[in-house]
């Protein structure tokens, strides 16, 4: 009986906490969307300079690492598929496999996970540090809305950067597979390119692109939410930064599953 009561209580507590977190995230979403889409048209302005600044940080500065890793993954995928396909003498189909897997799944996922580690954590740390140093309070006392000032530029920059990076990452990943197949496995170059072009459909692009947009939303909101959760000092910032990465990767995989399932049918 006590075990039942204990389980019952624990379940309740966990659900309540989850509901509370959900309600906070919803408030955050409504505020962000309000200050991104509604308030700018009421003359409240948008901090374009900050958007561009963040765009450079999230997009341009991430390109080398995203590019490098996606190139390598493309090559790895080509090798792994060759391992199986060579047995049937079907190495020319590496192109189809690498192309479809990159565009539908791996390029968006890798980009999102890299950006979580690189920029999602940075968002959480920045907002957390500002909260600890009373800078968020200072903004409010000055009559400046923290949502408009801090969140919206990051949100917009993320929303532009990640889909763009994903498209580039897809090409680089396919390039990685191409280089390995043509130069190491001896697949004919024209054949590889033709097969890639024939394998890829608009639907594949739509899957990858839609996913990347939602990944951007997840990374930004998790970072912001965790940042605002910071209490105490430097320790709190570290804890919430780590937690932002873990939560974000979990949610990315979850969103990935949902959209893969949706586009499957």
């Amino acid at each position: 009986m006590t075990a039942f009561i204990y389980t019952f209580g624990a379940t309740g507590r966990v659900s309540l906490n989850a509901l509370y977190a959900l309600s906070r995230v919803c408030v955050l979403m409504v505020e962000t969307i309000n200050w991104t889409l509604v308030q700018p048209f009421r003359g409240r302005g948008l901090r374009m300079k900050a958007v561009v600044f963040n765009l450079v940080e999230y997009g341009v500065n991430s390109l080398p690492i995203v590019g490098l890793i996606c190139f390598l993954i493309g090559a790895i995928m080509a090798m792994q598929s060759a391992y199986q396909l060579a047995r049937f003498g079907a190495t020319q189909y590496i192109a189809n496999l690498v192309g479809v897997a990159s565009m539908r799944e791996l390029a968006p996922l890798m980009t999102a996970i890299l950006l979580t580690g690189r920029s999602g954590s940075a968002i959480a740390a920045e907002i957390g540090t500002m909260k600890v140093a009373e800078e968020i309070d200072a903004l409010e006392v000055m009559g400046l809305n923290p949502t408009k000032f801090l969140i919206v530029p990051k949100f917009l920059a993320m929303l532009i950067a990640i889909p763009c990076l994903t498209i580039l990452a897809t090409f680089i990943m396919i390039l990685g597979g191409y280089m390995l197949s043509v130069f190491a496995l001896g697949v004919d170059s024209d054949l590889y390119l033709n097969n890639t072009a024939r394998a890829l459909q608009m639907k594949d692009f739509a899957t990858g692109f839609t996913k990347s947009v939602f990944f951007a939303v997840v990374i930004c909101w998790v970072g912001v939410y965790r940042g605002f959760q910071v209490e105490g000092g430097a320790e709190g910032v570290g804890k919430m930064t780590t937690s932002s990465v873990v939560t974000s990767i979990f949610l990315i995989i979850l969103v990935d599953l949902v959209f893969t399932a949706l586009f499957f049918f």
Binding site: A133, E135, A138, V141, M142, G143
Partner: peptide, 17 residues
């Protein structure tokens, strides 16, 4: 509107770093 007429000095100064 009220906050435009109010200033505050924070303990840790809270300047934007």
């Amino acid at each position: 509107e009220v906050r435009k007429r109010v200033g505050m000095c924070f303990q840790g100064s809270a300047l934007f770093n």
